[in-house]
């Protein structure tokens, strides 16, 4: 009897990490393939580049993961990041120092998250529909803020956030890794994190167990807005500008990373580690293709193909071919 108990626990664990294995496999295959095809791929400088590239969307992917695990969705993150970037440029341009600029940017991010959260949790609108609407309005706002112009940022202290190095490691990369560690901790060791999985798995049962489902959902949109703030700051300081049409694909990239990492859009499933690996798969893929000078159109096709291939593998492992519906 004891032995059986142990076996079941082990298979439970394997079940949980099965999509992690897929994404780790994908990452290894990519690295091996690019290492063979491109002589400059396996270099320290290149891995720094990958990190720099992955950092902006990597930060927001952390909170997008929690939103998805909770059974909600936010597809307005790209637009939120663009608004934050514009605000950063405006505040900096008006003479704000790096602390003020950053604080204002984060505050704007939280405000945008609160707007999404209000409609979704107070008026109880569908999250997908709400964020389709705010995705457009926020993008419009980004253009409105500068009348459609890009604004350059001259404050070098602010630009250090995205471009600087500490002990030879890019700041962006450090910020991203800290975000992942914090969110990993939240999701695994805090009651808030546990409750995110609960409300995603069964909101009704969670509500009846005394969890304040709506308040938690609202908090998640606030957190997501905050992380849009972090990504927006990184974006503005890396590019040294506020660009109204920036970050257009970021919501899709973040969602792709989350899905590659094994989260279910229906909620209740997913890990921060999975999302981290998922975002690495996407960043390495993009970097490798750039180094091999793969055309932009082909890059889009290949990224889409990798995404569909990876979720197909998970689905087949989950027995989708043996089901009739």
């Amino acid at each position: 009897m004891k032995q059986q108990t142990k076996k079941r626990t082990l298979s439970d664990l394997m079940g949980d990490s099965s999509s992690l294995l897929t994404v780790i496999g994908a990452l290894l295959v990519e690295i091996v393939v690019f290492a063979i095809l491109s002589p400059n791929f396996l270099t320290v400088i290149n891995f720094k580049n990958i990190g720099l590239y992955a950092a902006i969307v990597g930060c927001v992917s952390c909170s997008v993961t929690l939103v998805n695990i909770s059974g909600m969705i936010d597809i307005s993150v790209g637009s939120q990041i663009a608004v934050v970037g514009m605000v950063a440029a405006l505040v900096s341009g008006a003479g704000g120092n790096w602390v003020g600029t950053t604080a204002a940017s984060l505050a704007v991010g939280v405000t945008l998250g609160a707007i999404n959260g209000f409609f979704i949790t107070v008026l109880k609108l569908n999250a997908f529909i709400t964020t389709i609407a705010t995705m457009q309005s926020f993008r419009g706002l980004a253009f409105l803020l500068s009348d459609g112009m890009s604004l350059t940022i001259s404050d070098s202290a602010f630009k250090f956030i995205g471009r600087g190095y500490i002990l030879g490691i890019p700041m962006s990369l450090i910020i991203m890794l800290v975000c992942y560690l914090v969110f990993h901790f939240i999701s695994k060791y805090t009651v808030l994190g546990r409750n995110v999985y609960m409300i995603g798995g069964n909101p009704q049962a969670s509500f009846l167990a005394g969890i304040n489902v709506n308040s938690l959902r609202f908090k998640l949109y606030l957190i997501n807005g905050l992380m849009c703030g972090v990504s927006g700051v990184l974006l503005a300081s890396q590019t040294g500008a506020g660009i109204p049409n920036a970050a257009a694909n970021y919501n899709m990239t973040a969602l792709s990373a989350v899905i590659l990492g094994g989260a279910a859009l229906t909620g209740g499933k997913g890990t921060i580690l999975g999302t981290f690996l998922g975002s690495m798969v996407l960043a390495v893929l993009q970097n490798g293709m750039n180094m091999m000078s793969v055309g932009a159109y082909w890059q889009d096709i290949i990224i889409g193909a990798v995404l569909i291939l990876s979720i197909s593998i998970d689905a087949i492992k989950g027995g989708s071919l043996k089901r009739k519906l």
């Binding site: 609960m198 069964n202 009846l208 209740g268």
Partner: peptide
């Protein structure tokens, strides 16, 4: 639909409230 979060463990469900 109302009593349990089915994809979570016995322990997680037991301590929910």
């Amino acid at each position: 639909t109302e009593g349990l979060v089915l994809n979570q463990s016995v322990a997680v469900n037991t301590v929910a409230a």
